[in-house]
Design a protein around this nucleic acid. Structure first.
Lengths: 246, 246
DNA sequence: GGTTGAACGGCACGTTACGTGCTGTTTTAT
DNA sequence: ATAAAACAGCACGTAACGTGCCGTTCAACC
């Protein structure tokens, strides 16, 4: 049997905290001396170690109490529930991460903070239920959506895109058949093919979505002006290619 | 100019909260009536919207105050810092996720909660600094480690592995040349090749690490007994294959 | 120019989750 | 006997974000 001080030393939990666990009924001593000093047995040591483990796994003290009260405890259910909670939280952080990343890119492109964009992003995620995906429903199949959303550009490729779009915005005044517009269009097309391959059906759905939605925040940084510019430049490019073939 | 009530209606923030923001100096009114009623201008509306946006992005009110106090605010630095924080938190959640997932698999394999395993997992992550990777250093190159850790089995494949190991544990008493042991060894090898391909050098490093470390928690559920059993069975299998070729 | 709704100042309290501090007394070990 | 350890009990701390309530004053509308 251990006194509270010995248990404290053995486990690294302060006496005061053990006091507290006793108080809230999480870890009760097995016995007491005549004088009222608390005594903890091996079972209690085990229970304390379990408590610490569950705490590490992210359970609240209250939840731990609930779980340990059952006999036998439904470990599998509790752990599964916790796993789902962690997954939820991960999803939330992923959204946050994407938002921050997107805003940082927008600063690189526009060299200033685009507040309307931020408000747009906020609303998109705040009114829950993934507004984003609902919008895509109008333009493409579920598989195509997956393809679109699963594009995982690495840092380098993303930087390239950001640089390209920045350059396009700097050159919006150029005519669509100017060399610079043609060069930008070529780089654009190359990037698109690199990301999605030659899947023409998919590209056409995506292009539809982008041209229709580019007033919103959905396809930032492919804003209306950028999309229009590149559309015109590509038209010219394809016409030229047709003439060359003829 | 808006009274505090109008601002509240416009933005959805309660009067009481605007009181509070005034109190902590986060959002001060632009002016006041003779009677002392607070008046907010367009600039304040903008500032409030920025505050809400930053709050959504995970900044604390205190941090927001610090950022907005600068002129001009260093948005890029603040957002980058926040991004790093989110990434840290994501990493923490990933560890937690892996721990929970691992424990759940161990329950499926052993049909009971393996507390020593949980304590082991706890210690591995608690003493920070990724103990896990340090151990691997002794057995393989950095690239091989990446290969090992980046194996992303899907749910189905993972379930197959778990089922296989469960079966192995049920059959530890079988002789290595029994049909069942041979069949288990075959499934094991097939799974390994599916995951890592025919990279013999890598497989040998990995096998070294696994046989040496299988007393610990590092390669759970490849525990000592399972690894020994499968090693023997594979030896027999290869000997037979050699004889057949001769 | 009175009624009513809005806003005021000020101070305390609430929430969640987890403890910590402090005091004065009793018990235990040596 | 003395000192270290444990006791009971009650308040307080932290961190981040507010909320509740009260009695008083102001502003708008008919």
């Amino acid at each position: 049997m251990y006194t509270i001080g010995q248990l404290s030393k053995k486990t690294g939990v302060t006496v005061r905290t053990l006091d507290y666990y006793d108080e809230i009924g999480l870890l009760k001593p097995a016995a007491a001396t005549e004088g009222g000093h608390r005594l903890y047995g091996d079972q209690e040591v085990m229970r304390l170690e379990q408590i610490l483990a569950l705490k590490y796994l992210g359970f609240s003290l209250e939840k731990i109490q609930l779980i340990l009260r059952e006999s036998p405890p439904s470990w599998e259910a509790a752990l599964t529930e916790q796993l789902l909670m962690v997954e939820e939280e991960k999803k939330r952080l992923d959204d946050l991460h994407r938002s921050l990343q997107g805003i940082l890119y927008s600063i690189q492109i526009e060299k200033q903070v685009n507040w309307p964009l931020i408000f747009g992003v906020m609303h998109m995620f705040q009114q829950g239920e993934r507004e984003a995906i609902k919008v895509l429903d109008r333009y493409m199949s579920r598989e195509q959506q997956d393809k679109m959303l699963s594009v995982n550009m690495d840092q380098h490729k993303m930087d390239q895109w950001v640089a390209l779009i920045y350059e396009i915005r700097e050159n919006l005044h150029e005519s669509p058949d100017s060399p610079i517009a043609q060069q930008l269009a070529a780089r654009w097309m190359e990037g698109v093919y690199e990301m999605f391959g030659q899947d023409d059906e998919f590209l056409s759905s995506a292009w539809n979505a982008i041209t229709e939605e580019s007033d919103g925040v959905m396809f930032y940084p492919m804003t209306r002006d950028v999309v229009d510019f590149i559309t015109e430049a590509i038209k010219v490019k394809e016409k030229k290619a047709g003439e060359a073939n003829a």
